[in-house]
Design a protein around this nucleic acid. Sequence first.
DNA 1: CTATATTTGACATTAACTGTCAAGTCAATT
DNA 2: AATTGACTTGACAGTTAATGTCAAATATAG
Lengths: 102, 102
Amino acid sequence: METIGEILRNRRQTLGLLLRQVSAYVDIDQAILSKIERGERKPTKEMLNKLAEILKLDKDELLVQFMSEKIAYEIADQECANKVLKVAERKVNYLKSHPIKN
Amino acid sequence: METIGEILRNRRQTLGLLLRQVSAYVDIDQAILSKIERGERKPTKEMLNKLAEILKLDKDELLVQFMSEKIAYEIADQECANKVLKVAERKVNYLKSHPIKN
DNA sequence: CTATATTTGACATTAACTGTCAAGTCAATT
DNA sequence: AATTGACTTGACAGTTAATGTCAAATATAG
């Protein structure tokens, strides 16, 4: 199972790009990109979009990977992780089917 | 669909308890409990456990409600919310089936 | 009106997150 | 071994977010 960081790093290397080049495009310090690739920091959505662009990855897919990873790590230690996800799904559908929010 | 806050408040009122009494048991300021019940603040897991005790609610169930609500609000605005949950489930199962972490 | 319950907001404290930078490691090359 | 280039690491400062405390404001009941 590939983490976001691994996806980004593998893709970057496949394309033969350097940290320096990618981080310049995304407009962040290369130290940050390095940390993101190693899972030490989390990218913002803006960064993700830029990364998807330069690495020619699907933006939505990358976002899904990112958010699901975040959630998974949040709850993986819980006995009831799967139940949490099931209930979350019900709540999401409820929220979606129901009009305005704040 | 009942929020955590509503669950707590309804239950407290059903039992005829005052904010003051419950907050004393949980050992927090009653202003905080008031805010929790109205969704303005999030309880910690410790608070949740104490609340479950004094309100005679199932701890695990309350935790599930809490975490799923948190997740639902995090992603409900996303087009791909359901996909995120599906992928998160796969990741959770992967993490669980795989030995140690950090 | 007053007494009790709850809500609200200002405030201070603390924790978490961010980006920047310089020094450090590591591998390949000369 | 010294140099070079790519990447990593940790200290630091700045910003934002979360937390608790308290007193004043509202509301509700009697």
